[in-house]
Design a protein around this nucleic acid. Sequence first.
RNA 1: CGCGGGGUAGAGCAGUUUGGUAGCUCGUCGGGCUCAUAACCCGGAGGUCGUGGGUUCAAGUCCCACCCCCGCAACCA
Length: 647
Amino acid sequence: MKPYYISTAIAYTSAKPHIGNTYEIVLADAIARWKRMEGYDVYFQTGTDEHGQKIQAKAEAAGISPQQYVDQVSGEIKRIWDLMNTSYDRFVRTTDPEHMVKVQKIFKRLYNQGDIYKGKYVGKYCTPCESFWTPSQLVNGRCPDCGREVQDAEEEAYFFKMSKYADRLIEHIESHPEFIQPESRKNEMINNFLKPGLQDLCVSRTSFTWGIPVDFDPGHVVYVWLDALTNYITFCGYDPDGASDEHYRKFWPADLHLIGKDIIRFHTIYWPIFLMALGEPLPKQVFGHPWLLVSSNESGAGEKMSKSLGNVIYADDLVDLFGVDAVRYFVLHEMPFANDGALSYSLLIERINADLANILGNLVNRTIAMDHKYFEGKIMAPTACEEIDDDLRAVALAMPGKVAKQMEGLHVADAIDEIFVLLRRANKYIDETTPWVLARDPEKAPRLGTVLYNLLESIRFAAVALEAYLPETSAKILRQLNVPNGGLASLASFDGMPVGGQVGTAEILFERMDPVKKLQEIADAKAAKEEPQSTVTFKPEIAFDTFEQVDMTVVKVVACENVPKSKKLLKFQLDDGSGKPRQILSGIAAYYQAADLVGKTLVACTNLAPRKMMGFESCGMLLSAEKDGKLELLMLSDTIPAGAKLC
RNA sequence: CGCGGGGUAGAGCAGUUUGGUAGCUCGUCGGGCUCAUAACCCGGAGGUCGUGGGUUCAAGUCCCACCCCCGCAACCA
């Protein structure tokens, strides 16, 4: 059997994955299942990426060890992958000791052969913050965190000689047009990163400890991307000492790395170069899939899910509401090949009703019900064919090939559509043949039996093909038809339903939903869930004299205007009572019209260190209150004069 | 001139590579049917294909200029 290695990106264990992240594993699963149906020996790897500063910080905030933290989140991710009924062969974790040892060996080997060298990381250092910054990160020449002066400083670090392999990589990308998908990304990588010249990549860190230690240099941990990317080979059986096992020899190079479009650069530049340095072949294809966005209201376009927007949707919540296959169907079908897709509850309900309940579910239901009604569930021989049957049969027989073609190009949504073309055709066929009319004339029984046979067989075709996308539903339909899944081979001819056999009982596959009621239900459930949790947090206690250092002054708005080219900033000219004008910039353009604020009496913190924003100096901070996307400036009545102090 | 994506029927999209009657799903209106989950089938209405120019016998599609929207980056003291 021909091997086929497909992987997803390993999920970063900083938080529970939302439906957008879950989309990737479902997409990979559909491809993996289809490849198995086509007879490939599939190896499907997924897992979690568990090192890095962010995770260390999250664990500290949660008051547990990083290991406990990643155990918890990784478990949660695996639970969701399982809930989505995904057929991965291996779920890997970068905290696996075996992986860690291999990464250390890889690092050492690259060091020994001169691809990694020890150098100096030159930058700006802010002593109070204990942070390194690159010149581009500095704000107005100062520390972006605290605004204080920074010093030139250097730190030992390991670097990878990217430039050494750049030409070879460009040549590989140019000569393998299928390597980066969608193709539009190819030029982006070459023009933006490769052509201008690759910088050597810093591949070690000393600023945190939650990573794989560089075994020959304590204090350094391996850069997370080097750690993460190598998962594709370390867990496949690669041995840095040259004794890679049979599994590796069979499956590497991977056929497809399925990843999000945001990490294409790492997979099409760094990863291939690491592999070149190791002397291993490159993966055959990297597909950067688009994102699943949420649209919060009917007309709203998609926006990225984020906690601060409060629009995060989780796969398990959706599965509770709609069932696994409905969610799988939605994410697979609603995602175009290259553009971002949008998800909303009303869209989801619409798709389930229109496609799954009406076209698919109702077809299966009405067909099996008719067979019971007219033939007590017996599968009749198709002896009375008519010309009108030819088109249905032709559509059915052509379907598997069309699906295969779409899948070959990774157009999963279009592949599913091909199956629904057949289902729609079958519904139409019922109207064309009007079985209920045939049933009135006993002499037409053979014709009626033939019509039902053709319908049952068409449904069987669809059910077999749907296995890759809706595995549970596929099995349910075949159970109702009472036939085994004969695989793609059984779709070569239109005679798979056993004549003389008996169909099962008709059961509802997808319940039709009332959109208004269902949306209300969802809103109620959401409200009930959100009620108990409080998002208000309080900072640690401070001494009174610390508080007293803050100088807060009443100011009058003399002038206010939008900062050009800025979405958030308003520029204020203020009277602070001193006689000298004071300029403050504030990021509240989304909440206030500049003109409306002229003449208002506000409060500002007036002894903050000045800071430059978008080229303008800001001397202080206007006080406002914010929660859940609502913001209001602190506004006093106009009777209090400028320069008055808060006390 | 920061980088990128996009503007096609009320909504969501395909079509643009290789110019040649503007298409799909949903919605809407009308009709048909009654086997079925008020489902299914047929038909109609609805489009200056962002704007202006150009090339061409012919432009949604190619060329030039411009406008608008959305991400990212820079801003949130």
